[in-house]
Computed example of a mutant assay.
Amino acid sequence: MKKNLANKSQVVDGLKITIKKQEENEKVEGKKKENLYTFTIEGENASSVKKGLGSIDFVLKTKDKKEVKLDDSLATFGNELKSGEKLSGKVSFATNKAPDKLVYKPNGKELAEWSVNENE
């Protein structure tokens, strides 16, 4: 089943967040192999005040409801955005569990989610 979130946007807490690309690869470290899910995310500050956005604000939820934290051994992004500014970057998750949702969860609060399964 092909999964694709490309160009799915939501405006959350003054930020327009768009999933620009979704990739699935294999990550190998020594004898350990995991699936690597990487999302290219674009954020635009649609509010009149500064807003922060970064890789650390996202988690991946699996079909069995577990949360996978970002793989910070790979490229991450983050910055404060002035009104109208855009920022894009990647967030990656390594797991052998089936992914279900990409969740925007700044400061531990779930504010938005995207299904990573095209058929749902």
Rank of each mutant, 00 (worst) to 15 (best):
M1A: 12
M1G: 13
M1P: 08
K2P: 15
K3P: 08
N4A: 14
N4V: 14
L5Q: 11
L5M: 15
K8V: 10
K8C: 04
Q10A: 11
D13E: 13
D13F: 10
G14W: 01
K16A: 11
T18I: 13
K20T: 05
K20Q: 08
K20W: 01
K21A: 08
Q22G: 07
E24P: 02
N25H: 09
N25F: 04
E26K: 15
K27P: 01
V28T: 15
V28D: 10
E29V: 13
E29P: 02
G30H: 05
G30Q: 03
G30W: 04
G30V: 09
K31A: 13
K31W: 11
K31F: 15
K32E: 04
K33W: 04
K33A: 10
E34D: 11
L36N: 14
L36W: 11
L36P: 05
Y37R: 03
T38M: 09
F39P: 02
F39L: 09
F39V: 12
T40M: 13
T40F: 09
I41M: 13
I41Q: 10
E42C: 10
E42T: 14
G43R: 07
G43H: 07
N45D: 05
N45C: 10
N45R: 14
A46M: 15
S47M: 07
V49G: 14
V49Q: 14
V49H: 09
K51P: 01
K51D: 00
S55H: 03
S55G: 04
I56R: 03
V59K: 10
L60N: 00
L60D: 01
L60R: 00
L60P: 00
K61I: 12
K65E: 06
K66Q: 12
K66M: 07
E67K: 14
K69N: 09
K69H: 06
K69Q: 11
L70T: 01
D72A: 15
D72I: 08
S73T: 15
L74V: 11
L74N: 10
L74H: 08
T76F: 10
F77R: 07
G78K: 05
N79G: 15
N79H: 12
E80I: 12
E80L: 12
G84M: 11
G84Q: 10
E85W: 04
E85R: 13
K86T: 15
L87M: 14
K90R: 14
K90C: 02
V91F: 01
V91P: 01
S92M: 00
S92H: 00
F93S: 02
N96M: 04
N96P: 02
N96V: 02
K97S: 08
K97M: 03
A98F: 06
L102R: 04
L102N: 03
Y104I: 06
N107H: 11
N107I: 00
G108C: 12
K109Q: 15
K109G: 05
S115Q: 08
V116E: 00
V116I: 12
